[in-house]
């Protein structure tokens, strides 16, 4: 499964990058979302996959023992997921606003700040 997930991460990256390379703003932001999922999966994989055992200390125990899923990447990803929501919502509003002002969705027409009048 690890190998398949690794390949899947590669696919997510490729898909994200492909969309980011488009000229349409909407595709760009969807690309960012997909890339974000790829990054999360990558971090998750790097911690090593452990089936079942979440990093919860049993009710009568004092520490995690035996086999358990790595809590560090989980904490990282949790943060990343929430932050990416902030990023996405800001980005999409920015796009909406840019579209309103510039009347275009084409990134290539927005590469000069001076042109905005």
């Amino acid at each position: 499964m690890e190998i398949l997930l690794a390949i899947m991460t590669g696919i997510l990256y490729a898909a994200g990058i492909y969309l980011i390379l488009r000229r349409s703003l909407v595709k760009l932001i969807i690309g960012i979302v997909i890339l974000g999922n790829g990054v999360n999966l990558l971090i998750f994989l790097m911690g090593g996959l452990v089936k079942g055992n979440p990093p919860l200390i049993p009710a009568d125990g004092k520490m995690l023992e035996g086999v358990f899923a790595d809590p560090v990447p989980q904490a990282l990803i949790l943060t990343a997921i929430v932050i990416s929501f902030g990023l996405q919502s800001f980005a999409i509003v920015l796009i909406k606003r840019a579209y309103k002002v510039l009347k275009t969705d084409d990134i290539d027409t927005m590469n000069k700040t001076d042109d905005i009048k």
């Binding site: 590669g10 997510l12 990256y13 490729a14 990058i17 492909y18 994989l45």
Partner: peptide, 21 residues
Amino acid sequence: RDGIIATSFGTFLAFTIIEIM
């Protein structure tokens, strides 16, 4: 062109992950 860039990056990334694992 973009497809090739994206796919090759994805491929190499996948290989790298497998190697790291």
